[in-house]
Design a binder for these strands. Sequence first.
DNA 1: ACGTCGATCTCGAAC
DNA 2: GTTCGAGGTCGACGT
Lengths: 257, 257
Amino acid sequence: MKLLVNPSLDEACSAFKDAMSSGEVVIIVGECEVEYEGRAASTLTSGERVVIFKQDGSLLVHRPEGYEPVNWQPPGCSFRASVTDEVFRVSATRLSPYEVLTISFSKVKLLFSEKLQDRGAFSLYASEEDMKRAIQLNPALIEEGLRLLTSEKDLGEAGYADFVGEDSNGNFVVIEVKRTSAGVEEVLQLARYVNEAKQRVNRPIRGILVAPSLRKGGQKLLEQLKLEFKMLSPERCRRELKRGRDVGLMEFMGLKR
Amino acid sequence: MKLLVNPSLDEACSAFKDAMSSGEVVIIVGECEVEYEGRAASTLTSGERVVIFKQDGSLLVHRPEGYEPVNWQPPGCSFRASVTDEVFRVSATRLSPYEVLTISFSKVKLLFSEKLQDRGAFSLYASEEDMKRAIQLNPALIEEGLRLLTSEKDLGEAGYADFVGEDSNGNFVVIEVKRTSAGVEEVLQLARYVNEAKQRVNRPIRGILVAPSLRKGGQKLLEQLKLEFKMLSPERCRRELKRGRDVGLMEFMGLKR
DNA sequence: ACGTCGATCTCGAAC
DNA sequence: GTTCGAGGTCGACGT
């Protein structure tokens, strides 16, 4: 671990070398110019930025505003640091494609380095949008033989049901999708859509609530209102989308012939 | 400017609030968990990370490896910080789409904040824009005798072709330009433009894809769709632009070529 | 507000 | 290695 405040450029340079050779993450805040040449080319004139160097050979130059780095280098490049003419210069070189990024510090305000321990697990869960896409792709996720008629159908003032469709017996089906555990609120929402539909469609109507789980209160209410529940998890939808992409690609290739 | 090393969570929290209210960039290195809920949802279990908060309401969570932030929030969100139960918690909320990201620090190793001054100018060279400018300047880069009629012509719902023109035989020509190697996707894009043009122009139409190279799949599809490919690199265009500038300058100075 | 498109996109997976 | 599609893509530009 190392921390330097307003160090000389020489101090910063040697600390940088030490840190990188021992596999630490280095953060430098200071005034710098940046040049890049490779797939494209760019220059950035002097200003104060935050630069992060990682042990996997990636690098980020961040201005004080904006989500995206103004300059960067992906993992796998090699760093070279030196001081000449009152400038602490770090170049990051990458092969394939060949690209060089050079940062020239005229002033270092902060240099921090440390080996960070991160064994954390990252999990990403599907959005409700993903679930709807998966259902549209494969309505059988809800029920075998289900055919979707429209999506986001306008059911009037009650709002918009996620889907309406028709089951294998010709019944009209109204579907409401939730990404998280459903409760009383969601059952009532579905009930409103079903009631709206009853005033417009003159045949048997089923209402299906689709969610990864249904809480107690929702369960009771659901039975009273004679609605139905279909368990479907975002994870399952994620897999289905992945599968669907592959199938879609196959069809696309076969169709072209 | 503020710098805290191994501060208490309360110290970190109050420093964070001070810094954000005075428009500083804040960097926190420490052990944290991250939760996100919005378009999708994600969790990240405990580990050491670098977190950058910017004045424009953007936020980045970086692990010790990788170019991309593991979690983030784009500009425009509002931060809220608090300490409860031995946890320093920062939540970043964004409306439209509604998204919340929460970082829970169990340990802060470093907190640095400062108002950064950055008025630097960023310039990028060899973009697709540069290629288009070069082509406009000298259409013969694509084909001898080619005359451009318009650029970015509105071809309706299919989108916008980069150029339309007329070849030396009076055929209508639709042109799509790519800076990098072109594949199936780009051929399909050109095909859409050509189809749109066919509904509007009642004469022979050629479609030309301009790019530094054409990959396998794109090549096959291109032949099937009877479209054409013209190799042109960004580097060549850069040279052409440079030449054009020189010529323009000469003419401006009143000199003969 | 929404839609399209480019990006030094990056990343992963399949071939 | 090349090719290809996804992304919480982001960001810019046009309608």
